[in-house]
């Protein structure tokens, strides 16, 4: 067994730090090459459409269903608290603001990391382990352009759209619970909401959040797949890493962006 001296421990810290910097550098180069490297691919648009389908359209069911449930839960909880102050009409405003500012982008980001992100990592990792990436390279097609780029763009486009749909069905789910079920007066539900929700401050800021999450989650997912050990354990480890890193990144960045956007109230 290796003795753990003080110097040895310091060395371990140093090595870990170097590893982190190396991964950051590698993944940045990867992203640059994939997105802005020279040499386009014929039929690139067709590839993008295909990825939009498997990354975006196939993630729709989970997003819609979760959106309805979360909107409904918000309305239920909001109602039970607000009704103590006699201001249950404010439930619409609470549901809408919570969804637009926080839960829409964040929950969509987390679900996207779990549904589409893990699938991307596993798919690309599998291509790597079956030598499909090497094979593309030897056929003379840059896999960064052919495999990575369409998936990255598809993720960047899909997640913000999904977050918007999540918020819409969430608000609908909230109104369904609050108005149709708990009996909040419909007019005050919507007018309270419309008075307090600002398009630029709430809708657009939420959209900006989801764009940032889309960028980070897709980047992590595609890079982890591309960089994984081409073995079955390597792929499963990379998939786990995608979900963990992407979720942490979403939550951490959400805190930072919330502080920047809504902090000086």
């Amino acid at each position: 067994m290796r003795r753990k001296t003080l110097i040895g421990r310091v060395r371990l810290v140093g090595r870990a730090a170097i590893d982190v910097v190396q991964v950051l550098g590698r993944s940045s180069l990867f992203l640059l090459h994939a997105l802005f490297g020279r040499g386009g691919i014929a039929g690139g648009f067709q590839l993008l459409v295909q990825q939009l389908y498997s990354v975006g359209v196939l993630s729709l069911p989970i997003i819609i269903v979760s959106g309805v449930f979360i909107g409904g839960v918000l309305a239920l909880q909001g109602f039970s608290i607000l009704t103590q102050y006699g201001s249950e009409q404010a439930v619409g405003q609470m549901v809408a603001l919570t969804l637009l500012r926080e839960l829409g982008p964040v929950v969509t980001g987390l679900l996207f990391a779990g549904r589409a992100g893990s699938a991307l990592t596993a798919e690309i990792g599998n291509m790597k382990s079956t030598e499909q990436l090497s094979s593309l390279e030897m056929i003379g097609v840059d896999p960064l352009k052919y495999i990575a780029a369409p998936r990255l763009w598809a993720g960047f486009i899909s997640l913000p759209l999904l977050a918007l749909m999540f918020s819409v069905v969430g608000v609908w789910g909230g109104s369904w619970v609050a108005v149709d079920w708990l009996g909040v007066y419909e007019g005050s539900f919507w007018s309270n909401m419309q008075n307090s929700v600002s398009f630029t401050d709430d809708v657009l800021n939420g959209l900006i959040k989801s764009v940032v999450f889309a960028f980070v989650v897709t980047w992590i997912a595609v890079f982890q797949g591309y960089d994984c050990d081409p073995t079955s354990e390597g792929i499963s480890r990379a998939t786990t890493r995608t979900v963990v890193y992407a979720s942490l990144a979403v939550l951490g960045l959400d805190f930072i962006m919330t502080a920047l956007m809504f902090g000086d109230f």
Binding site: L52, Y53, L100, L164, M165, V168, V171, S191, M193, L207
Partner: peptide
């Protein structure tokens, strides 16, 4: 499918603008 998906996303943005934020 992809076309509908993109349109639905844009529709969602419009709904949020008009119905939710009262713009």
């Amino acid at each position: 499918g992809v076309g509908l998906f993109v349109l639905a996303g844009i529709l969602a943005l419009v709904l949020l603008a008009l119905r939710v934020s009262g713009l």
